[in-house]
Design a protein around this nucleic acid. Sequence first.
DNA 1: CGATTGTATGTTGTCGACAGAATGAGGCCC
DNA 2: GGGCCTCATTCTGTCGACAACATACAATCG
Lengths: 223, 223
Amino acid sequence: MPLSKVRRVSLAHSVSSQLSRAIVAGDFPAGSQLSEPSLAATLGVSRAPIREALIELELRGLVEFDPQGHTRVPTLTPADLQEIHAMRVAIDPLAASLAAEHATTDVFAALEANIAATKDAKTLADVSRLDAEFHDRIVKSGRNRRLMLCWSGLRDQVELWLTQMQLRHQAITKRTRQQTVDSHYELLEVIRSGDPKQAATLAGDHVAGWTDLLPTVTAVPNS
Amino acid sequence: MPLSKVRRVSLAHSVSSQLSRAIVAGDFPAGSQLSEPSLAATLGVSRAPIREALIELELRGLVEFDPQGHTRVPTLTPADLQEIHAMRVAIDPLAASLAAEHATTDVFAALEANIAATKDAKTLADVSRLDAEFHDRIVKSGRNRRLMLCWSGLRDQVELWLTQMQLRHQAITKRTRQQTVDSHYELLEVIRSGDPKQAATLAGDHVAGWTDLLPTVTAVPNS
DNA sequence: CGATTGTATGTTGTCGACAGAATGAGGCCC
DNA sequence: GGGCCTCATTCTGTCGACAACATACAATCG
């Protein structure tokens, strides 16, 4: 049996990933303070790794720092979502065009599997997770580290927003699900065709298409 | 005299800004290790603020972490510059369109002053600094914090790249300078006109126009 | 002489501790 | 009873110290 490389994972990284999952999952109510001593006690580490993780999370937009230095879970406003959406309209076309240039067959297979899974999605949480994974694959296949960094931050913030709006457990309408499946399939095919320009424009239309959906969602916070 | 707000600046923030300036200025050769003890001794602080600053700089792309955890100044390759350029092609149109929507008269004044100063630029360092300030104003006027964060990271990395290519002290040709002045003026006018779409397309053409310039520059590292 | 082992140094990751500031409770004076 | 002052608590920002790990070098053994 070939020995696999032993990689030591720093506590700061563990804390970072664990905290980001917890925040996105809604374990901390929006606006709540995350005090370093309590986090340290909960996670069983000292404050140093906690602080380093919090700095990383702040730059990813999952926490924010008070003027007094207190760490809080940001309460995402409609304005925030508009910012995120505008960024995605700018970035998704780039991701799609890069994918059209660089994607290999295994990427296509993964995307197809993702679309197939999306057809069985029941809740908004399901479809949102699958949608995130779908675009994750596309962005990663583009092999642009700056793009990946930017995208992952936006993705996490969208997930956080979904949680804060309490939309995760909402059942998804057949129409919305079919819409995502269709547009994802279109996107896959244009990426597979290998035409960057066409992929970019289609991706742009795809994201921009959500523009009229978002206000209606924000207008119905919890029903 | 109205008392200005006393702002407590954390050491970590001071270290961060000071280090980023030093790195961008080329005080550390590309690929050199930044050991925390020596930085701490040099700056007269303990390692804790150093570490926190380094984490921030890593996410901004000004340093990178070895597999062994050592902090090093990244050696930007042509591939890195292509990544950055691709991101700017995606992002600058958004910045311009947002500016066209939100910019106020004082922004226009600042941009005009910047263009005027650019006409007197002597070296590539001058024109690059003024260009960065120009786009800084535009991005800031768009009032999108995510965009601002993304842009500032790219900007710093471009500055670092200029330093590493030893292009800062190179005299600028009249033609290049005039080209920058012209395109900046065009951009200012279309933003002032308030048409987001037109501003976006012009900004996109503007950045994309540098595509054929970059290879020629990279082909002539130090002459 | 080459390979291997032991060692010595430098660096990172983590911890516990302390000072300063902010916040809130409780008592005191008017 | 209301406003103000004092005090206790809690948190952040920072520091110094220690262990684990990696690296380079010297010494040892075949």
